[in-house]
Design a binder for these strands. Structure first.
Lengths: 222, 222
DNA sequence: ACTAGACTTCAACGGTCGTTCAATACAAGT
DNA sequence: ACTTGTATTGAACGACCGTTGAAGTCTAGT
């Protein structure tokens, strides 16, 4: 192998990431995970302390990388636009592009990771606390940037707009295959290029529409 | 009680709907469900034949009602606009409003049902087949209507646009509470009026933006 | 060579799961 | 009153779950 080696921890993280993404948390057993990873069952508890901590570790591993890259791009587009305010399209790009780039160029682990993120984002259980813990700081920074890029919009519209934005992203990353069925094969859920070409324009137009609606109905902030 | 009675089947459907929506399929046991419903454990298998068929029955029960109401409104807006083509806003309204109206005026069961829908929509497992079986026919009708309302748009843009649309809806129905946290209480996930005021404008603007993008890049259909 | 510590293996624990089945209760038809 | 079919009960089944602990292996440091 080209790589020097893969530690037991990494093997477990990779296998669990893949299986959790495919079947969810409760439907995946530790025996499946350790079987896929080729290690002993007890090693999950030795290295991570249990099933839930393993899940948390998966979320954090690539979450930290994603946050860093997102913030890096956000400051980049801000500097490029200075001293003028950055455009909503640029902010949205800084938010989406790291995901799309990782899907394009990085390994298949990122694919599983984003499917997993889509799963936990809509999971009604404890997973959301992990979600907040990992991503809230970065997300708040992006919401702030969106407000700056759309100074006419009410804060409520930005918050709700972010909600819609992340919902559209989430369902796309889940790759449900629904799109393939409904379009009779014309579109494919895993077509990153097609997603890249449309997701940004869609949500940018949506946010601008929301901002206009707020201004038109005269409920803009004082 | 005002209602004449509730059959065992209905008690089970209601209890399971509530618990599945809150914790997901695998994390909810039949013993919890029958306990909540106040009936014997074995009755699930007697009346429905198992846990999965129970889940399917939940999906179908209100799904049929929702489909009927959606199609009713779609034909209404089509007739109101005839002989001209219906606007995308009207199509989107016929798609969203039944959900929002049920949330407003119908019982709490609908609330659980839509949370459950959000859950199964992003569930990477067998649930999606049920989803397709229940909703695909109606959804195809709405996609056709969207194409008519945006004649300049490429079919691919409509399909992807529907994907984003339903993603935004799905995350909103899931009521993750994320919105409440991120906005420091300014917005509330369960504020149906706030959602109603923003979801339609957002996705309508997004779809129009997608259509313009397609036309601008010259890849519209011949 | 020996020891200390990190890592791995193996077998088993108690608990909960979905499902089954024989026995019982109930309601309606005759 | 008796029969028939539907509905309900209670107890139990085998399977699988996450977790644990004791024993074994491997790797450095001295």
């Amino acid at each position: 192998m080209a790589r020097p080696k893969r530690t037991t921890k990494e093997k477990l993280l990779d296998a669990a990431e893949k299986l959790f993404a495919r079947k969810g948390f409760h439907a995946t057993s530790l025996r499946e995970i350790t079987g896929e990873a080729g290690v002993d069952l007890a090693l999950v508890n030795y290295h991570f302390g249990g099933k839930k901590p393993l899940f948390a570790a998966i979320l954090e591993r690539r979450g930290a990388v994603l946050n860093e890259e997102r913030l890096r791009r956000l400051t980049a587009v801000r500097r490029a636009a200075a001293p003028q305010a950055v455009s909503p399209e640029a902010v949205i790009g800084a938010f989406f592009d790291p995901i799309l780039d990782f899907l394009d160029h990085a390994g298949p682990g990122w694919h599983s990771y984003f499917s997993l993120l889509a799963w936990v984002n809509n999971s009604p259980e404890w997973g959301r606390r992990l979600m907040s813990k990992t991503f809230d700081a970065t997300v708040r920074e992006f919401i702030r940037a969106l407000m700056e890029s759309l100074p006419g919009a009410a804060p409520e519209d930005i918050f709700w707009g972010y909600n819609f934005l992340t919902g559209a992203l989430t369902l796309s990353l889940a790759e449900t295959g629904r799109l393939d069925v409904l379009s009779d094969g014309l579109c494919r859920s895993n077509d990153v290029a097609a997603l890249r070409a449309r997701l940004g324009p869609f949500v940018a137009a949506g946010l601008r529409g929301l901002a206009q609606r707020g201004a038109r109905s005269g409920q803009a902030q004082s």
